[in-house]
Amino acid sequence: METEQLVKKAIKGNDDAFLQLIQIYKVDLYKTALSFLRNEEEALEAIQEVTYRAYKGIRKLKEASYFKTWLIRIMINYCNDQLKKQKRVVINEEVLESIGVTENHSEMELRDAMLGLDERSREILTLKYFHDLKIKDIAGTMQCPEGTVKTWLNKALKALREKLEERGGNLNV
């Protein structure tokens, strides 16, 4: 309830309320960024950009209770944009190595599978499983019926299974 009060204030232009909200969700935002992007540096840049985008857009947020979903979605959109840009950049060996060192195998596997999905599936799975958000809230922020979100979620899980099996299969050969 208290958060919702803050959100209402922030929508009206209260800067302190806005900054408090970002404080509440900064770790969630950071983890999301890290799950999509390559390293700490990029994740911090993402935090910066998302704070900026959120501030500029908060007046347009209609439903205060969707704030968290709304905010995380800004981060996901930002990360998706970055991923598109990265596809054009050749990853050098150093980066590949550092990923290999810092992350364990299962994380790598799922992460790669996630990054291989389409944007919508990746978004739905991140919101639902990474942030434990309710279908209702996701539907609310995306302005579509809950049924649609459920369909998307099923498709996303199916696609994820396929990706994982693809990899698993390769390993087993």
Binding site: D15, F18, L19, I22, Q23, K26, V27, Y30, E40, L44, E45, I47, Q48, E49, V50, T51, Y52, Y55, K56
Partner: peptide
């Protein structure tokens, strides 16, 4: 994670806006 660095990033984004 470094909370200092996180806060710094937040303030940079906020000030830009």
């Amino acid at each position: 994670l470094s909370l200092d660095k996180l806060d710094q990033a937040i303030m940079t984004g906020f000030n830009k806006a």
